[in-house]
Design a protein around this nucleic acid. Structure first.
Ligand SMILES: [Zn+2]
Ligand SMILES: [Zn+2]
Ligand SMILES: [Zn+2]
Ligand SMILES: [Zn+2]
Lengths: 163, 163
DNA sequence: CAAAATTTGAAATATTATAACATTGGCAGG
DNA sequence: CCTGCCAATGTTATAATATTTCAAATTTTG
């Protein structure tokens, strides 16, 4: 798994996407999971956007492919991709984004720019540690963490407030 | 603002609710905000449950009051209550819960029990600090944090897995 | 009191997500 | 090769959550 580009900096995004797909194929093979054409296409669509994509956005992209899909098709694919750690759901946006740490055991922390909508996924060990500490301090056994931070990315801080 | 009971331990919950309402009235007066009857009633309904309540749950409670309300009524009240720091929205549940730190400047961390649905809100300074550090480390200016941890509360860890 | 602003009512609709059941297609065992 | 099984997909309908829009009522302000 190679290093990823920072989403809000210009980069060769096609390479970005195709690397993600290559990684995904390897991960699915390892896990003996079937990355079927629909699933792969949904993953590709999500990756083509550096910003989170709603299920119905995915759906309409599929439709413009000529694929006559209904909501369950998309949600099933998204469930699969989430289960295998290939995409994350951003609860505060009801949207999905490609995981930039697929294959690594991690707890994502998502930095969501309110101006340009780009999302950067970090793996912040210190944060996870403090969360676990705070939880166990009150006897709570943490299983799953949703951590989403909205604010301004470096580029949008620099620019006048019109993104 | 007095200390709060731990939600998953038995306590006099009516007192809990009435304290929250008293606090809310004081806070709104300070902020020159109008805690109208509808808004107060919605806050009360939310507080009466120690677990998060969906907007449509609130709506049906209002209906059984004899109040013929429509969704916007509830969402408006919820918006108001959120804006004045009296309730929080739990993004991972699409539901709302009374803030146990109203009036204090804080970033909530929510411990959500997957078995009994009770939620404990913590103010974890160390966590907030680490989040801010991680964000600013990549030049991101954090404004708003969603931090929701699901798992098992102490009581449900002890009991056989039927909550 | 009258004008302005805020709050609420009401109807329609948008958006997100799931339930339920039918169909297809690959594959293992006979 | 056929058959039965299982996972994946198709299809239709519907549930659950949230917002838009405009009208009416109420409160505040001058
Ligand atoms: Zn990830
Ligand atoms: Zn930005
Ligand atoms: Zn709070
Ligand atoms: Zn519990």
């Amino acid at each position: 798994m190679s290093a990823r580009a920072i989403p809000y900096r210009p980069h060769n995004h096609d390479a970005c996407v195709s690397q993600a797909l290559t990684d995904a194929r390897a991960i699915c093979q390892q896990q003996n999971a079937r990355l079927t054409p629909i699933r792969e296409r949904v993953l590709e669509l999500i990756w083509q956007s550096h910003r989170p994509l709603g299920a119905y956005d995915v759906l309409s992209e599929l439709s413009s492919d000529g694929h006559n899909a209904a909501p369950p098709t998309v949600y099933r694919a998204l469930d699969f991709l989430q289960q295998h750690g290939l995409v994350h759901r951003i609860a505060s946006l009801n949207a999905f984004i490609g995981c930039t740490h697929a294959g690594e055991n991690h707890t994502g922390m998502f930095l969501i720019c309110r101006a340009c909508s780009n999302v950067l996924e970090l793996t912040a060990t210190a944060v996870s540690t403090e969360i676990r500490k705070a939880a166990s301090g009150v006897g709570f056994q943490a299983e799953n963490t949703t951590l989403e931070v909205s604010g301004l990315c470096p580029r949008c801080q620099a620019e006048p407030d019109d993104g």
